[in-house]
Amino acid sequence: MSQLSQLKVLIADDHFLIRQFVRNALLDSKITDVQTAADGNEAIDLVQKAQENGQPFDIIFLDWNMPTMSGLEVLSYFRAKREFASSAFVMLTAESEQQNIMKAIKAGATSYIIKPVSPTDLAKKLVEIHEWIKRKRLTAQTVQG
């Protein structure tokens, strides 16, 4: 996974408008391996199954307010598991209160994007997140080696 276009992405948001908007922005960056989830439980199932199948998601976009489990709960669930340490969990939310941003960062969010976001700004964030993933995996390889 050295190319941006090879990233595998999950978009978890209960609104189809955002799922489709992000999917379009990813397509602009030539990222085609994209799945979507409409609630927190579905996101957990998809991320876990992908990991078990040996084809984990590289980036998981999480809305804050979703049915069944919030994005923050999904984030905390996976950050407690070591095998997801190099997966990027990105909060993509209209929730802009400073204390909630801090909560997400403390819970291990890789990035925090406040909606609305333009496709151009999302593309810039993707490059930053891709760099974070590469650094994280390089560090993991060095430690193992």
């Binding site: 609104h15 189809f16 408008l17 955002i18 209209a94 929730e95 406040i114 909606k115 609305p116």
Partner: peptide, 23 residues
């Protein structure tokens, strides 16, 4: 259903931004 879903999310984004500006 699409229109209703989209207006819900637009409401969320617009007034979330208004809140941020006012606060």
């Amino acid at each position: 259903e699409m229109a209703v879903d989209a207006v819900g999310e637009m409401t969320n984004m617009i007034f979330g931004q208004v809140k941020c500006g006012i606060n």
